[in-house]
Write a protein that binds this DNA or RNA. Structure first.
Lengths: 320, 320
DNA sequence: TGCTTTTACGCGCTGCGTAATAATA
DNA sequence: TATTATTACGCAGCGCGTAAAAGCA
């Protein structure tokens, strides 16, 4: 048994039981992958993959168990490498953040600016996607942290830490009649065509739930993954927009008017997620503290160690 | 990086930073061990061991962190092997119990008899030692379970499950004057020379604490690790004995008389301990259930998964 | 002078790539 | 027919053991 064999197993599983793709992803030859897997199966005397003729189509029960261990081994090897880097060149390295457009554009810039000034030797990479893709990137080790509002909790192997709460504003073109209706009500909002986030993004689920709860059927004429796209279409007069308050910029957005809607919707919480069992480079703790000051090193470590859902343990600081 | 290098690191640490001993323990050459460790240090660019001249005398901080990961990797490799055995020959294998004399002699026989009948293909091995040695055997992977009354909890990386409670009897030679004093009191016991367990064994700490709490200074003329040795010396008239109730056999021990002492001492709890993060062969669950019927597979799995001390979670069934 | 680690060196195994074959969809 | 897995084979590299040297207590 050797490490390479375990890497091969993980890659084959991750590539949906395609050994050729697995070989590509590891920059090696496909026969090598097949052979090493066969050797391992022979050594431990049990088939790991279910084959239909010559095709690999799934895992045996034994394979599934072994896969979980193999994953942990491969992760630990990565951890060992990281410890080495941390001690040999603590202020240099790579740092990949998987996040959504809205976070990247509106909530992260301040922390990222401070971070890059503090760690000029760290190569920072932003990877964008929807919350599900983000969680998968993190789980697959393609990112070091994930930041998003939806669906980061309840993903096996990940730990989600609450960062901050936020709520929504309604944005309209200048001179829109809705600006007259004070105070703002859900009914008034539902009377106009609406532009807001896509299903998977930025607390859209809260918006849907709120309308449904009040037995309102809003006319959502356009949904987008991107606050800037929403704002553009609102400017064009396609409808009124519901976006995160942080996405409205009073300086830039002069062709829009804004009405606070915090009283209409439950607040949403943005989470920062980490893979369980990973060694965190020192600068990662620094970044997390820059982004969410209540998440100090001890808090993060405790959350990473605990098996139980960490959200309950962590009080969220008030307001923002 | 390869598995062997990680094994070498673990062995060197376990052998108190003696590379020669580590090589012996792994049945390989000492230069090979040194060289592989050097290669790894070179590869990840950080010293793992602190050297004084040519002697290895300790670990660097980086080394300590890496050691913990290396341990887990080595353990997971072992786990993978076990999964293979479980699925290829589920009713065959090896099973090592680390325990004390008293458990081996008096509490285990029934479960072991049933187990060997159920699993004739499993090679069962009993390893005896004091509770500290037992815990170390388990932690080092030299045993699959540890069973003892003292000091199995509070050992990092181990999970202790309460199995049963028990208490003590006083044994005397036939016709001893203590037999007349009804009911038995601590003061009466303390009036005679006492033979009982060694410091490290079988709830001796409870005995000491009880006497101390009553401001009594018993005259313990002989302590032994072994109930049978204690009984032998009580038969010889050296003193009265305090032993676990289960150690008195009314059929065999005809030259001894017995007085129940449950009302004098707090009960002790015997624990069964497992290493965290280990894959358990199916027959191990069977054995545990035979020995302590309230510890079914789910209970054991939950305890193994949880990071927090498992004892608090587990109710101990009453009496026995 | 022990005992321990490092250096030196050569053999043998094995992992890996290329090429060819077999089997599936 | 296109894609994918297995078999065959040969080279290169590396892990491991033996032997010798170098330091340490």
């Amino acid at each position: 048994m050797n490490l390479q064999q375990l890497r091969f197993i993980c890659a084959v599983v991750r590539q949906n039981f395609n050994a050729s793709a697995a070989a590509d992803s590891l920059y090696t030859s496909q026969p090598g992958v097949s052979k090493q897997i066969q050797l391992l199966e022979e050594e431990i005397n049990v088939a790991l993959f279910v084959r239909k003729g010559k095709r690999i189509i799934g895992m045996t029960p034994a394979g599934e168990q072994i896969f979980t261990f193999a994953q942990r081994v491969v992760g630990d090897i990565e951890n060992i490498r990281k410890v080495g880097q941390e001690f040999s060149q603590g202020d240099r390295g790579e740092f990949v953040i998987a996040t959504t457009h809205t976070q990247a554009r509106y909530s992260l810039p301040k922390a990222i600016k401070a971070f890059t000034e503090r760690y000029p030797g760290v190569q920072l990479r932003l990877r964008q996607g929807n919350p599900t893709q983000i969680a998968e990137m993190l789980a697959a080790g393609e990112a070091d942290v994930a930041i998003a509002t939806e669906s980061l909790n309840s993903y096996a192997g990940l730990v989600a830490l609450p960062c901050y709460q936020w709520n929504r504003v309604v944005i309209t073109p200048t001179g829109h009649p809705l600006l007259q209706s004070q105070p703002l009500t859900l009914e008034a909002v539902a009377a106009y065509p609406i532009v807001t986030y896509d299903q998977a993004f930025a607390g859209r689920s809260v918006i849907d739930k709120t309308f449904a709860h009040h037995r309102l059927s809003p006319n959502i004429v356009l949904s987008a993954i991107d606050s800037d796209v929403i704002k553009a279409y609102v400017e064009l007069g396609l409808g009124i927009g519901i976006v995160a308050k942080m996405a409205y910029d009073p300086v830039r957005d002069t062709r829009l008017e804004v009405i606070d809607a915090s009283h209409l919707f439950d607040p949403s919480t943005t989470y920062l997620a980490l893979r369980q069992g990973t060694y965190l480079r020192g600068y990662l703790y620094t970044f997390i503290a820059l982004y969410a000051p209540h998440l100090d090193r001890n808090t993060v470590d405790q959350a990473l160690d605990s098996t139980v859902a960490s959200r309950a343990l962590l009080p969220l600081p008030s307001g923002s």
